[in-house]
Design a protein around this nucleic acid. Structure first.
Lengths: 219, 219
DNA sequence: GTCTATAAAGGGATAGAC
DNA sequence: GTCTATCCCTTTATAGAC
């Protein structure tokens, strides 16, 4: 995979007219075929990582030749861009909703955790890709929003934790550290949680909240 | 990066005499130069991911041309192999030591968490690479040991948790789930923990143990 | 909307001179 | 132990026929 050309905002080859200037005139902005291809690409990105997935892999999965993909998408980057942006849009909207309701802090904490596990089945591939490839992608201008969104999420979470500390509802010495602790534990479950297993995402959120809120020491 | 040839146990090109049959006669098995190159490679793997790091990147960092790398190492794979194997050897030895001491379960839990944070500065690059690339590498025969080691680690941890439940020292409804919870929260910190920051790894382990053992609800 | 064919560049790895 | 030079393959992406 061409490390220097593929996921770069400014390709090193001479700029061509189609280089992300317009949404590529002939490509329908949205179609069932397009969505299906994106879903397949998302699955492959999640399984192998963005960089290890070639456009030929995607084309194979969709029953096309690689060149035909470019009728639907500008580039491999565009696909991962759409995938991540729509995930973050959805997640942020929901978290803003919860944080904005001014629930009791402990209730808000629970709702935030439940929300994350709830998103697992809907955004499985995007979550995996975000965890695996966001750090790399975020180095390119086009993906700058990844950092912005992550920061807003952190702010929403830390706000909830702080309110809990202020009200005496939660004991949490370092809200930023605690946020990372929760975030990492919760989102990493996407790597091993099986939709077809015995556990529902509700079971998972209940278990994680129990450990998180009650702790491992007997009360 | 040639997806099908690079990290594969059986390259698709015709098998050549040097294909991992012997440790490549002329290459010194260990030398300061070799170690220095491996350290540089490890850093690059951690920063960009194994696949996104080219042998030319590594050679540049070492002040060599790419061809010269092959005097020291068989392949890019061999480098990541050495990196991961030596990390896992060290970590497993220490965890076996702790688990084998038959400490009080709560004490053992604390020692295991401290051990993990302790390994952070020593094995920073390897931990990042393990998290980022192990799933992909483990699909190839050569890296089968990654799964074996991960399983042994899980067994050691779950053993400690189970003993805690049996003795009433810990409340932990699902030891496997709890292990994953702890593992993911602890090891993910490698992505944001800064050695040169205000927090020592000891601070980190204390904070995480507090949340984990005492919980966020006031006692 | 898909295919054929191919461009342009980068990838891992090798051989042999020095 | 490093360099020169290069092989051979894969990659993303394009152009134009159908």
């Amino acid at each position: 995979m061409p490390k220097k050309t593929a996921p770069e905002a400014r390709p090193s080859r001479p700029r061509r007219p189609t280089d992300r200037v317009a949404p590529r005139p002939p490509a329908a902005v949205s179609s069932p075929r397009r969505s299906a291809i994106l879903a397949l690409a998302a699955q492959l990105f999640a399984e192998r990582g963005f960089q290890a997935t070639t456009v030929r892999d995607i084309a194979d999965a969709a029953g096309l030749l690689s060149g035909s993909l470019y009728h639907h998408f500008d580039s491999k980057e565009s696909m991962v861009d759409e995938l991540l942006a729509s995930f973050l849009d959805d997640l942020l909207a929901r978290c803003r909703g919860i944080a904005g309701q001014r629930l009791e802090p402990r209730e808000a904490l629970e709702r935030m955790v439940e929300e994350a596990f709830d998103a697992l089945p809907r955004h499985r591939a995007a979550i995996v890709v975000f965890q695996h490839d966001a750090a790399h992608l975020a180095r390119f201008e086009r993906f700058g929003y990844l950092k912005v969104c992550a920061q807003e999420l952190e702010d929403l979470w830390v706000g909830v934790l702080r309110r809990g500390v202020d009200s005496g509802d939660l004991v949490c010495p370092e809200p930023e550290l605690t946020y990372r602790f929760i975030r990492d534990a919760v989102w990493m479950s996407v790597h091993w949680y099986r939709l077809d297993g015995a556990l529902t995402t509700r079971d998972l959120s209940r278990h994680y909240l129990r450990v998180l809120v009650e702790g491992l020491a007997p009360r």
